[in-house]
Amino acid sequence: MRFRPTDDQRALRDGVRALLARRFDREALRAAVDRPGRLDRALWRELGAAGFFALRLPEADGGVGLGLPEAVLAFEEAGRALLPGPLLATHLAAGRVPGAAEGETVVAAVDGGGLVEWLAQADVVSGDADGAVPLNSVDPLTPLHTVPARGAADPTAVLLTAAEQLGTATRACELAVQHARAREQFGRPIGAFQAVKHLCADLLVRVETARAAVYAAAVTADPADIAAARLLADEAAVRGARDCLQVHGGMGFTWEADVHLLLKRAWVRTRRAGGGTESEELLARDLLSGTGGQRSCLR
């Protein structure tokens, strides 16, 4: 057992992080907020060239030939940067939809739960989006449509969503800690006050617990592990963003601070694939399957 990223996996993560830091820094994030519903096609192609969409495609098919753990690390970075766009749908379409792997074609997908992200901006829609109704999306960086719920959740989509949530939770923790160190009240950094300190500690505990669950699910690809990863990561992202907001005080309630972007994106992702109830039910059934708890322990 060596349950930590290998050197290659670290290098891949650092590579994605560096690319996003260069091409999608805070300024770019805020610019995207100011131009809602517009996708940066040049960035999309750059992601394609870097292998973001073709990551799990076999090398014989022109892909990078890596697996779920690598994809999870890449999606975590995307979640950390709050990178907008139908990343998941395009990634899942690579190899099936011409141009998706390269980032030439933007693909939107009808999610099992009935939500469609970025429908109007996509070149190709996978699934039946007939009669889709637009929502006035709460997240300025995710245009949304709904269709009647159809189809089952794809476990890979659930796992990669959990990876994005993990990244967003990590960002929330980082922002909260930065602010707690910098902002002073009563003559000292607010991070010296225990009430604030403990909010930050809980943020980290949720992030690290979710990280272990998400990475393990990427290794085992076990549906129950994936369901667990989803629940933990949703919690880490949503509660993390809420606590981060609290640590920011009045600033946290502004449009100008990034905190609301974290929370709103986390909310959108909790609704993917029909929401967490599916996962809770799957995990409940797993308890009765007898082998449930023990099987994956043995790995």
Partner: peptide, 28 residues
């Protein structure tokens, strides 16, 4: 009740993974 049990399943799976993570860190 059922979903509460499902959530606990997630929780203890994650705690097991966190243990494996910490042990791997300690080994490294």
């Amino acid at each position: 009740l059922r979903r509460r049990l499902g959530r606990l399943n997630a929780e203890f799976r994650a705690l097991w993974r966190l243990t494996q993570w910490n042990v791997s860190e300690a080994e490294a």
